[in-house]
Amino acid sequence: MDTTTPTDALSRNARPPLAQAALGVGVIVLDTQGRVLLGRHHSGTWELPGGKVDPTNESIAAAAVRELREETGLEVDVDSVTVFAMLHDVVAGINRVSMAAVVTLESGSPQVTEPHLISTWQWTGLDALPGPLFGPSAQVLAAWRPDLSIEHPPAHRLTVSATGDGS
């Protein structure tokens, strides 16, 4: 017998869940020569542009566009971003969900817009990826191109259909 009152259901639906996950997006930015854009973080790792999805009903693609602009000064349209996978692992008891996105840039030069984090951005051939890679960036690159045999922390992968029709 259900003893839940409509008021209880409404308050449960309006109450935020306990925080137990972090949601971010890693953006593979390709140039017309097929090179990938990587930034050298001051910690010593190389990483893709990306970051947290804002808790403002921001879409994953919109977060990718915003993070790319904030971190590199590069501008792309939301419609040019393809979100292709969701990666999930756990760090220090927190579920980390990284959405993987890819976009091809026809022109533009990346700028260091956050010098307290990134010292340089560089275009890198897939046959010459530097190391060490930041864990989530390595996971995104490995999900995109498993043939590259990129070392990365283990993660669960869910393929995302760009069209929503299973293709």
Rank of each mutant, 00 (worst) to 15 (best):
M1L: 12
D2A: 07
D2Y: 08
T3S: 14
T4P: 01
T4E: 15
T5H: 14
P6R: 14
T7D: 15
T7P: 05
D8V: 08
A9C: 10
A14F: 12
A14Q: 14
R15Y: 06
P16R: 08
P17G: 11
Q20L: 12
A22Q: 09
A22C: 08
L23S: 06
L23E: 03
G24A: 04
V25K: 00
V27I: 13
V29K: 08
L30M: 09
D31L: 12
T32W: 05
T32H: 15
G34I: 15
G34N: 14
L37C: 11
L38E: 03
G44N: 08
G44K: 12
T45A: 13
P49T: 04
G50H: 02
D54P: 02
D54C: 06
E58C: 07
E58H: 07
A62I: 01
A63Y: 04
V65F: 06
R69G: 02
E70V: 05
D77I: 04
S80L: 08
S80T: 14
V81D: 03
V90F: 05
A92Q: 15
I94L: 08
N95F: 08
N95P: 03
V97T: 07
S98T: 11
A100Q: 07
A101Q: 06
V103G: 01
T104V: 10
L105Q: 07
G108A: 11
Q111C: 03
E114P: 05
H116W: 11
H116Y: 11
H116M: 09
I118Q: 10
Q122L: 09
Q122N: 11
W123Y: 13
G125V: 05
G125N: 11
D127L: 05
A128K: 15
P130T: 13
P132A: 11
F134K: 08
G135I: 08
S137N: 13
A138R: 01
A138N: 02
A138I: 00
A142E: 09
W144A: 14
R145M: 15
E151I: 09
H156T: 11
L158R: 10
T159W: 10
S161L: 12
A162M: 03
S167T: 14
